[in-house]
Design a protein around this nucleic acid. Structure first.
Lengths: 354, 354
DNA sequence: CCGCGATGTCGAACCGGTTCGACCAAAGGA
DNA sequence: TCCTTTGGTCGAACCGGTTCGACATCGCGG
């Protein structure tokens, strides 16, 4: 079932078969039909390895994401799915590689052994040796996120600074004065994850601008941590009336913590943040949030990477996305006190939606 | 940077380099050191394509899952992650392939072009042409789930029948008499998805056994559908006091629908089902459910596949998992009427946890 | 002292494609 | 009529590894 066998049965040479199938040189109609018939009969498909070896391209993209020691978030799932589908549309396969850093065995396999034509990097850190390494090698890649110095690179990112700031302004506009920030886990912040840093940054600056009293917290990527985090928040400052979170996986726990503390959302306490819409819609009341457009990011990353592969000398391109806040039902005007009657607040909220 | 270059610089033949690196024939200590030095100096790594072509193995596993038209579930995410990690431990890469059926272009690429050594199939249907096709070809693969005739195959599955039945018995033991079943979307049921069918089956039989009055529903994989589904349930039979769900993605919507209908969980209404623990813990009250052991399934699937690859003549093996129900906080005794005082129920629930 | 096996190395073939240069026949132009 | 295109096909080289058989060298036992 190799090309030689096809050639033999069709009574032509191997090169003719190759040309008939690729169309890179003219082949007579008669010969082409004969070859096609044999191919169909035997269900022949050229070996990917042999083809990759011969023309130096694997038709495979690498998708590099950190190992799951830290749980995956829902956003990553949507993202992976859209990358795979977008790649399939360009006739590329997707190889998954669980690599946090440059020196990972898995990363070395991708690059050193030339298993992929290009790579998409997830979970970018401000100082990211993977990005630096690939840039130094001029290896075609697209980062999902920006390092500290994104100039001249290929990436698609979310403007976490602006998004977190938008959340702050939304809350400040509603009259909240004491606001908490729930970040990703501390280890990720320390590792320099972009979203954690820029989000914190945007939050802090915007809060200062609006003269808010704030506290910031790191929180594990699970419901139990979210619940514990709310307890800490309300213990540290019981007068807190709102929070902003980047932590999708903790969201359910945050809600639970608030409920157990007797704070009703959004009457007594407002919650907002940066979360993919499908997760924002899962909680009750639905979360008013900047919707992370995971599918779009995946699609765009693939588009960019394919463009870079097709035009090796194309100038660097990027997309910085800043989706607007979707008003749902988890934020409302700051009440006088948590125990005050909040009927008017609810009315205002309803009006805003109408 | 190919093996010939290494050979030249080390002053030996290409085959000697190959043997020095693979250790498949003795090489003198001196020669080995010289070669290793050159390799380290140049950072040489053998090309995966060339190696794959030469020895007929790609060191890559295919992970076949249906395209995301229907949203991915959280369980799939955990699953993908664990497969990738387990495969990495065996020095295999993972290639993602979004294929619903046999004839998908993507599926043909994997198989026909021999991009992978073996495959793991997700989202099995009772009649699954992918499974049949691979079995006919004797292509090394492991299915996540059982077809209608799983005998003689390699698979790791969840005993959905038993799990759904366990949910029914749990509710019946608590005194519930009118119970609804919330299945995956109708299109998946019609397509013959195993979990949807076996789960429905187990539910129906167990309910009959216990003499329960039941209704079964299909529900889209998102929160809005879940909410709508609860509305239908309570409209069709307002006396319903519990539901069993297989639909992880709809869970948040189910809770919201119940809350909006004024049913308090677990006082007025019990919810249980088959859901991965991290999602069961996200909702409030936390869901009493049979925890889908997604990570374990992924790991075991890889173990099985690697075993099959290493021992082509090994007899078929499988794992049928049936995790116990984890008691959390979403089920309680059926009250006399939804409006009756339920203090004693809550007490009983608390006691049970203690 | 000779023959033998073990050790170390090499050249060549092979895996299954792609592609280049050459060749031949038929068609078109001067 | 002869020369040049053009269309169609072939053989051979190449991509970068692995592996087989052969061969030289050495130490050893008989």
């Amino acid at each position: 079932m190799n090309i030689g066998e096809i050639a033999r049965r069709a009574g032509v040479s191997r090169s003719t078969v190759s040309y008939a199938l690729s169309g890179k040189r003219p082949v007579s109609e008669e010969t082409r039909r004969k070859i096609q018939q044999v191919v169909d009969e035997l269900g022949y498909r050229p070996s990917a390895s042999a083809r990759a070896l011969a023309n130096g391209r694997t038709s495979t993209l690498g998708l590099v994401f950190p190992p799951a020691g830290n749980h995956y978030t829902g956003m990553q799932l949507d993202f992976i799915g859209s990358v795979v589908e977008a790649a399939a549309a360009y006739d590329y396969d997707v190889l998954l590689s669980p690599s946090g850093v440059d020196s990972d065995r898995s990363f070395q396999r991708l690059l050193g052994e030339r298993r992929v034509d290009g790579a998409i990097l997830m979970e970018i850190r401000l100082e990211d040796d993977r990005v630096d390494h690939l840039a130094a090698l001029d290896f075609p890649s697209v980062a999902i996120g920006r390092t500290a110095r994104p100039e001249g690179g290929w990436w698609v990112g979310l403007d976490h600074t602006a998004l977190a700031a938008a959340c702050v302004h939304h809350l400040a506009d509603l009259g909240h004065r004491r606001v908490a920030f729930v970040n990703r886990p501390e280890q990720l912040l320390r590792a320099g994850y972009e979203s954690a840093h820029r989000g914190l940054d945007g939050f802090t600056k915007a809060a200062a601008e609006r003269g808010l009293t704030v506290r910031t917290y790191c929180c594990g990527d699970d419901a139990a941590s979210g619940q514990a985090c709310v307890e800490r928040i309300l213990h540290d400052d019981p007068a807190t009336t709102a929070l902003v979170t980047l932590n999708e996986a903790a969201l359910g726990g945050l809600y639970r913590g608030l409920a157990q503390a007797g704070r009703h959302v959004p009457r007594d306490f407002s919650v907002t943040g940066v979360v993919a819409s499908r997760w924002a819609e899962t909680v009750t009341p639905q979360l008013t949030a900047a919707d992370v457009p995971a599918e779009e990011m995946g699609r765009r990353a693939v588009d960019l990477l394919v463009e870079r592969l097709d035009h090796p000398d194309a100038p660097p391109r990027h997309h910085l996305l800043a989706p607007p806040i979707s008003l749902r039902a988890s934020t409302g005007p700051a009440g006088a006190t948590p125990t005050a009657d909040a009927g008017s607040n609810t009315a205002a909220l309803t009006a805003r939606h109408g």
